[in-house]
Write a protein that binds this DNA or RNA. Sequence first.
DNA 1: CGAAGCAGTGTACGTGATACACAGTTAGAC
DNA 2: GTCTAACTGTGTATCACGTACACTGCTTCG
Lengths: 257, 257
Amino acid sequence: MDDDAQVALPPGIDLLWGLRPRPRRGPKPTLSLDRIVAKAVEIADAEGLGPLSMSRLAEDLGFTTMSLYRYVASKDELLTLMMNTAAADVPVPSDPAEGWRPGLARWARETLVLFRRHPWALQIPISGPPLEPNNLAWMEYGLRSLAGTGLAAGEKIGVILLINGYVRNEARLSGELAQGMQQRSSAQPTPTYGQALRRLLDPEKFPYLWEIVESGVFDDDESYGDAEFEFGLERVLDGIEALVRERSAGSASADLG
Amino acid sequence: MDDDAQVALPPGIDLLWGLRPRPRRGPKPTLSLDRIVAKAVEIADAEGLGPLSMSRLAEDLGFTTMSLYRYVASKDELLTLMMNTAAADVPVPSDPAEGWRPGLARWARETLVLFRRHPWALQIPISGPPLEPNNLAWMEYGLRSLAGTGLAAGEKIGVILLINGYVRNEARLSGELAQGMQQRSSAQPTPTYGQALRRLLDPEKFPYLWEIVESGVFDDDESYGDAEFEFGLERVLDGIEALVRERSAGSASADLG
DNA sequence: CGAAGCAGTGTACGTGATACACAGTTAGAC
DNA sequence: GTCTAACTGTGTATCACGTACACTGCTTCG
């Protein structure tokens, strides 16, 4: 009648929270979970998720493929562990006097750094809200900034998800762009986005798009930089500020009663 | 010295724009590209991208696996074609008198419908900006609303990408939630997000998250609905409105000279 | 009318994830 | 101290999947 192992957790989550019993007998392990995950992250950082196969990973570690399965139940589980590791560069506790807005902005920038450092983290298929300890710590970090705002619980989550979504999207866009540039500098001649559109588009059928193409914005590779990120972030924060003001006004009058 | 086939386009793009020569001799085809892509979309809509294998697809069509390769160069190409088909429910030309804000809001809602209908479209690995005709038409549709705003070309693109990103994120979130609910109703007992967090979290290490957990928002499956979408959308549009106002004020004074 | 080009098929290969059984190793039970 | 269960690293095997290649029979153009 213990309720500990009652409900199934997604693969790898129990391991991350130390809920999986450690082996007691047997030979000293030569490999280790940490080394496996670290190497996997290293490969994914450098070459993406595609070239990361269990055999490739094992080879880079100097072991056989199957040895990895002594530490990891499946590749799926490995990906979960990698996700947790990617979020391990845990942000410093922010100054409590910092306002919610600079706090969230800082959170957003650090999240962007995370996704730039580990672009594959955007492509891991996610089956639900995060349960990895480091990812939850990251969320906690964001929530801390909202503590004094008087927002309802659901609203706080909404704000966190909104910003996280914004950052993810920016990271994805700049990642795609970087990928395009990389391809262009490689062997086969891939055209610029602007070049491709000029060749394909019928100006009469796509007048508005054509106008943009003609402006030349699509021709330089440098489009999506930090300035765009900061600008969009401010827009999103503006929207949140409206909500915060509304709530703090309401709760202030209630508190003053 | 023709410059037509000079530069390489991503796989499938040439086909979509009618740039691939049609075969002249040989037996009458029994299969067709349209049927293949339609069936592929059907499978992906119903079961996701995972179960969509070339053999499964062929079987459902009543042909052999290899017959598909008479119409499609690779699975990658097939995915591109599917993407284009997903965006085929082309939006009606909007009333030109409609303001930019309701126009963009409508565009956002229709994009959300697209991603709800074809959740797999969010998971197709994208290597760059869209080149599929229907996806470009979709973009064009969004740009039309921005015609009278006086925004610069780069800003218009930024706005379009911002909204598209917001919608993608909301669709992803509600998709994940639906997936979780589906699993919960299946055989193995998967816990609610709230249940899982209650079991894993140390309230002292995650005080802010714990507060949310205690509030119960994580316990009902109904969290992410249309109300949240509309709310967040209005916030994003608020941010854009600020930009538009700034630009129209500037250009107005310039135009009046 | 004859051959070039093409549709659908069958076979085959390479890769990737992973189940399973085996040999050597180690920590406790007696 | 000894025995054995538990465990590590490995080799082998299987299955699913994407796709190259060669074959047969049909169609259309020169």
